[in-house]
């Protein structure tokens, strides 16, 4: 009986992915190898239906920055250790349902709840700025920021907003007393 349930589960997954136009779903550790594999997979796939160069570049860019955010931030918390979500994240690429047939990249990873206000403030700030404001913020962060031990420059989210020209959609869900789950959706629309 259990066997049958799993079969149904896989079939349901399959249907869900098709219904939501998810072309890539991954849950687990994000390494550099994974980043390379996913980006080249996406490039090949987009080549196969002759996606235009500027769209390809944007999708590639958003994927790289999102994957690097996951690999750099998903395992920073000690309190996450041993809870089953250490160092892991979910990464999804899908087609937009809208007429313009763009893409979206969705990510989710655990973060320490104490870091949520700072992250929220950055996201809100980014979403309030226009093109020129984002450019200035990027330049300021590049000048004043320093690279973290893991090579994070604090520029990824700003850059994603700049390159796509879209607002960042996000949500935080409480996991337990110390941890939250950070969800981010980036749209890459055809303009």
């Amino acid at each position: 009986m259990e066997n049958v349930d799993y079969m149904n589960l896989v079939y349901d997954f399959h249907k869900e992915m098709l219904a939501n136009k998810f072309t890539l779903v991954y849950e687990g550790e994000i390494t550099h190898q994974i980043t390379k594999a996913f980006t080249s997979l996406a490039e090949n796939k987009m080549d196969s239906y002759s996606e235009d160069a500027s769209m390809k570049k944007k999708v590639f860019h958003v994927m790289v920055e999102c994957l690097q955010n996951l690999s750099k931030h998903a395992e920073e918390s000690d309190s996450i250790e041993g809870k089953g979500y250490a160092g892991n994240g979910i990464f999804i690429v899908g087609r937009l349902d809208e007429e313009n047939q763009g893409y979206h990249v969705l990510t989710g990873n655990a973060v320490e709840t104490t870091k949520v206000p700072e992250l929220k403030a950055l996201l809100e700030k980014i979403n309030q700025l226009d093109k020129d404001g984002l450019k200035e913020l990027f330049k300021k962060q590049m000048r004043e920021g320093s690279l973290s031990e893991k090579g994070g420059a604090g520029l990824g989210l700003i850059d994603i907003a700049r390159k796509t020209g879209e607002k960042l959609e996000y949500n935080f869900i409480d996991l337990d007393d110390n941890n939250s789950f950070f969800l981010l959706r980036t749209k890459i629309s055809r303009k």
Partner: peptide, 12 residues
């Protein structure tokens, strides 16, 4: 051709 944001900081 392409550089990520972590590289952009080092290029500066």
């Amino acid at each position: 051709e392409y550089f990520n944001t972590a590289s952009s900081k080092i290029l500066l």
